[in-house]
Computed example of a mutant assay.
Amino acid sequence: MEGRNPLERFVNALANVVEGPVVWFRETIVVPNQKNYNWYHRQYRRVPTIDQCYTDDMMCYFEANHQFKRDRMVDTEILAILRQRFEDCVHYESPDHMTKCKDLFEQYNQNAENWFIKYGDLGAYGDVRAAYMKQKHRMVWERRHGPVGTGMREATAVQG
């Protein structure tokens, strides 16, 4: 401290006078009383899904529809993040990107397929009832003909 010039000591003393109370207030009052938030967005409680609602319960349908739309927005954002990660990897690993970014590409394709299974072909105004009917039709198809995309099975026995 002896080697410092008087101007530097004056500036440091002035900074301690101005900054000292602010640091003390933050360390003794703000930080101990601060709550630890792990989430930076609002958490909604899960409401009953459409298959748990009665057919004439419009409030349950309304809540299930809003939850479905929130879930669709979240899933769409997750898919956008995965797509951006893959594009960044391709950009960064440019000449040899298909060997280094293969895992990201497969992960994105799997999630895009799952997103399309749940939300695809519903359109902009698709609601929870249409998605539920889509899921029901898919399950009936798979029970009758096997996985979607394998084609229809031939009738093996005479139905009657």
Rank of each mutant, 00 (worst) to 15 (best):
E63D: 04
R46A: 15
N114K: 11
D56Y: 04
T49A: 12
E106T: 09
Q67L: 03
A130T: 13
Y108P: 07
W115S: 08
F62A: 03
N65R: 02
K69C: 06
H66I: 07
E113N: 15
D103V: 14
V140C: 08
I117F: 15
D96H: 02
A80C: 09
W39Y: 15
D75M: 08
F62W: 15
N65D: 07
Q52G: 00
D121W: 09
Y132Q: 14
K100H: 05
P48N: 05
Y92W: 11
H97V: 04
N38K: 06
M73L: 13
N111K: 10
Y44P: 06
M59F: 04
M152V: 13
I117M: 13
A112C: 02
A64Y: 00
K100S: 05
Y40G: 15
F116W: 13
Y44Q: 04
H91N: 11
P48Y: 01
T55Y: 14
P48L: 01
W115A: 14
E154P: 12
H66N: 11
R138I: 06
R85I: 07
I81H: 11
K69Q: 09
R143C: 14
A64W: 00
K136Y: 09
A80F: 03
K134M: 06
G123E: 08
R45M: 10
C101Y: 00
D127T: 02
D51N: 06
V140W: 13
H97F: 01
F105N: 11
R70W: 03
D57C: 00
Y108Q: 09
H145K: 01
Y125S: 13
V74F: 08
E154G: 06
N111D: 14
R144N: 12
V140A: 12
G146D: 06
N65C: 02
L79Y: 01
E113D: 12
Y44C: 03
G126T: 04
Q67A: 12
V47T: 06
P147Y: 09
R138K: 07
D103S: 14
A64F: 00
Y108H: 10
M73G: 04
G126P: 11
R143H: 13
D88R: 09
A157C: 14
S94P: 00
R85L: 11
V148D: 09
G151P: 04
D71V: 05
M58P: 00
A130F: 04
K118H: 10
P95N: 00
M139T: 11
M73E: 10
D75C: 07
T55I: 12
P147T: 08
F116D: 13
T150V: 10
Q84Y: 13
N65W: 04
V47A: 05
Q135A: 12
